[in-house]
């Protein structure tokens, strides 16, 4: 499959596809970070995670419409407001869901899977009723459109760089929150030993709710970033949920570094293969490779050594 290209062409292709892969990687990382927190830390399978992401995407869509018609002067900056709103909306919905649904099911992880699947169906239909079945796209501010010419054959889109910058910021933020703050210490304590954490005075219910809300909120930001690379429809979230779960499992649940590494390898493999093969074949090969590796090494790439 490489035969028809010269060496220089191949280099450019790899660089361009690599960069396209990096945008996919950013969305994956944001999705997977939220899921890694919820699944890795709490053991809850949140099948509605994609719908939380889409909620963020719809918030961005609403925001772009609002700024366009009412505050055109501030339009270039609307994306930052949109991301904050997406985080808040998804996070708030997440905390509500945790309170109403998830907290009754912590002892039955397989049942959370079914219940959140039901939730995802309800959310999908709600989006369809509110926003219509057609996919919507957002208007990007002028400064995000266009690309930077690096060499003759390689050019890099600006919105891609912006998404990556946001992803990096959020990843660093989450890492600091989980490993350097008091809240992170409490979360990790609850994960390792719920009874003991409660005994030393940690309000475990509150920690659970905030953790779930945080995971969903990050999914909301992922949705915000997602609007730049794809259009938003009621069922767009469902397309990503399997990939995201595979990323979390492949990286080794409960390991943020693993999540990032696996999101990187999966998105790069897929994006590079996509150039040479058809999109569906690239996806099949990538997923098969991941499932195959998981069968040989079920604990994933990185594991946390915890005595259970």
């Amino acid at each position: 499959m490489f035969g028809d290209y010269s060496l220089g062409d191949l280099g450019a292709i790899f660089a361009m596809q690599g960069f396209a892969g990096l945008i996919l990687f950013s969305v994956y990382v944001l999705m997977a970070l939220g899921l890694a927190i919820i699944f890795g830390q709490m053991g809850v399978i949140n099948m509605a995670h994609g719908e939380f992401m889409i909620l963020g995407a719809y918030m961005t869509y609403l925001c772009s419409g609002f700024f366009q018609s009412h505050l055109p002067a501030l339009f270039p900056a609307y994306f930052f407001v949109a991301m904050a709103l997406a985080f808040l909306a998804s996070g708030a919905l997440g905390m509500l869901v945790e309170w109403a649904l998830i907290r009754h099911l912590y002892k039955r992880p397989l049942d959370t899977l079914l219940a959140t699947w039901g939730l995802s169906l309800i959310l999908q239909q709600a989006y369809r009723s509110i926003f219509g079945a057609r996919e919507v796209g957002v208007e990007l501010p002028a400064w995000l459109i266009g690309s930077v010419q690096v060499t003759d054959t390689i050019e890099i889109p600006i919105n891609g760089m912006f998404v990556m910058a946001i992803t990096t910021l959020i990843t660093v933020g989450v890492a600091i929150l989980m490993y350097r703050s008091r809240f992170g210490a409490q979360v990790r304590a609850v994960v390792q030993n719920r009874a003991m954490a409660g005994a030393v005075g940690i309000d475990t219910e509150k920690v659970d709710r905030l953790t779930f809300g945080l995971g969903c909120g990050i999914a909301g930001i992922a949705g915000s970033a997602f609007t730049m690379v794809g259009s938003t429809g009621p069922t767009s979230g469902q397309l990503y949920i399997v990939d995201t779960f595979l990323i979390v499992v492949f990286g080794g649940a409960a390991s943020l570094l693993g999540t990032i590494a696996s999101a990187f390898s999966i998105s790069q493999t897929q994006s590079t293969l996509e150039f040479f093969l058809s999109g569906s074949t690239a996806k099949v090969i990538t997923l098969l490779a991941v499932v195959g590796i998981l069968m040989l090494r079920p604990q994933g790439l990185f594991t946390l050594k915890v005595r259970r």
């Binding site: 699944f39 053991g43 399978i45 992880p109 397989l110 899977l113 399997v242 779960f245 595979l246 499992v249 058809s278 569906s280 074949t281 996806k283 099949v284 997923l287 098969l288 991941v290 499932v291 998981l294 069968m295 040989l296 079920p298």
Partner: peptide, 30 residues
């Protein structure tokens, strides 16, 4: 055999079977 020998069960098994369903669908459609 591949999964249960390595003591993969519960939620992991659910996720992997789900991925297999996704793979087969993409393969058939593609």
């Amino acid at each position: 055999t591949a999964m249960f020998r390595r003591r993969v069960g519960g939620t992991y098994f659910a996720i992997i079977t789900q991925a297999i369903a996704a793979i087969l669908t993409i393969l058939i459609v593609g």
